[in-house]
Design a protein around this nucleic acid. Structure first.
Lengths: 222, 222
DNA sequence: TGCAGAATAATCGTATACAAAAATATAGGT
DNA sequence: ACCTATATTTTTGTATACGATTATTCTGCA
């Protein structure tokens, strides 16, 4: 049987990868059955997802996947534009050859996923690149916050991004790595700001709803 | 009977005002009794407080008020040093005479509380000044995050600050207001950074433990 | 046929029950 | 008297039960 941290991870993954699209209802007993636990445990992870704004709960009406407003989408990206460049000096300070190797490998993975058209993996890897970078800084509080913002960005892209906008920006993550290798702090900061502004500008409306979801099947193959 | 949002607020207030000191255990049934609800509702707010790092829960051992490590204390203040000055340009843009009046009144309250030696009110007002300022910016996500950091700062000061360090910095909040009135963005940013650096430097060790708490009495007089 | 209102079903909110784990108290032996 | 092992109590973790609220279906009437 699964621990609730794992259930949280699975649900979050399903949400940010758009397997559970914005607006999708999350009935407690269906989920409880799918994960083989009682409603008590499900409520716990739903409450957490609600605090982190991945789902919205309405009193006596249950929870559904958050469908971010355009305002919320912009605030998420603006937060990242403000924060992530500020972490670069710290990242440069802690940057090692080992880090470089790890992140170059990740970029390769990203490119591969893009070429194969694996959308959900592409979304996941793009977010991962950014929040693992933030984790190199000496501030775990800000790193965690950036991680949350990256996941929320994935949700935003699921709601507003075109298929192209999810992947088109991933190709140039390597450029940032080169700047970090060269310890070009100012340029790396500038790159990060421009990069995130591009992502922000790429979100365009694309509203679509989905059919009923078979929770049992969805979570058994993860 | 109280809603869980109110219970959350009361517990948070008790924690940041040091009425429930760092390390204090939070037994579920005692709290449930004190608030006149079942353990289910208490667990919900404890889980929220845990996600926000105000309490720590250990598996099968229950929850206790977080006793921030020195590293955590520094990270909280460093986060604020990074973030709050960045919000100033937005704040200056939205700054109105109405805001000015409100915040000058708050500074008066702060000074009054300091003079009277009302420590917990002083702590509360200092945090409030900062997070209400952040709320003027156009980014509610960052504003909420700053609010959380301000409350965590209060907890940090409860653990590491001397009595003096809590209040000594509040006298000069008026200086910032003058800079905002004059729309001196750059100077206001600089002021904020210096202000927070002073707060960070003021934390010194002061470890003390407390006796058993009577939850029933504590929450009835709030 | 279409709509209003009542009956039914589904779903949520909260308390309670019970099992598992930890903390504490007790008894026995050196 | 002190340490250790066992028994008791306390406290947490999880499931379940039940009332309350919302959603859906069904029926009767215009």
């Amino acid at each position: 049987m699964l621990k609730d941290e794992q259930i949280y991870q699975k649900l979050l993954k399903a949400i940010v990868e758009h397997k559970l699209p914005p607006g999708e209802r999350l009935p407690e007993d269906k989920l409880a059955e799918a994960f083989g636990i009682s409603r008590t445990g499900i409520r716990k992870v739903i409450q957490r997802l609600a605090l982190e704004r991945f789902v919205i709960v309405e009193a006596n009406k249950g929870a559904h996947v958050n469908r971010p407003s355009r305002q919320e989408a912009e605030e998420v990206l603006n937060s990242r534009i403000l924060l992530e460049p500020q972490l670069i000096p710290d990242i440069v300070n802690n940057w090692t050859a080992k880090h470089a190797k790890h992140f170059y490998a990740m970029v390769d993975e990203e490119n591969h996923a893009d070429e194969q058209g694996w959308l959900s993996q592409s979304i996941q890897l793009t977010a991962q690149f950014h929040y693992e970078l933030a984790a190199i800084s000496n501030n775990s509080i800000l790193a965690e916050f950036v991680e949350q913002l990256c996941y929320r960005s994935s949700l935003v892209l699921a709601a507003y991004g075109s298929r192209k906008s999810v992947s088109c920006d991933s190709g140039d993550h390597a450029e940032l790595l080169a700047l970090l290798d060269a310890r070009e702090t100012a340029q790396a900061q500038q790159w990060m700001e421009h990069h995130l502004i591009k992502v922000k500008q790429s979100i365009s409306l694309d509203g679509n709803d989905c059919a009923q979801i078979d929770f049992q099947r969805l979570f058994s193959e993860m």
